[in-house]
Amino acid sequence: MKKLVYVCIVALAVLHHDFYWWHSHEPLLFGFVPIGLAHHVGISIGAGLVGLLAVKYCWPQDVDVRDTPPFVTPPAGGEGE
């Protein structure tokens, strides 16, 4: 499923370059939205759906952190210098 999500993101990026609609405004969606704009609105909706798939099937396992004391000052500096 994780691979499918990545494929979907790449597919959205490829579909973004919609050269097949670049020279035409027809058909008009709902009689007023030119097809090129409708296509990109579709990509926005698609991005939301891919986000839904990502949070459902690709949720990272190591990110949930239990409550710790509210404020811990990070250690000063690194040892590299």
Partner: peptide
């Protein structure tokens, strides 16, 4: 209308990403 594709649909994909 191209401005939507330039600014919004790219951002929709990669901001969430």
């Amino acid at each position: 209308i191209g401005v939507y594709g330039q600014m919004v649909s790219w951002s929709g994909i990669f901001h969430s990403f």
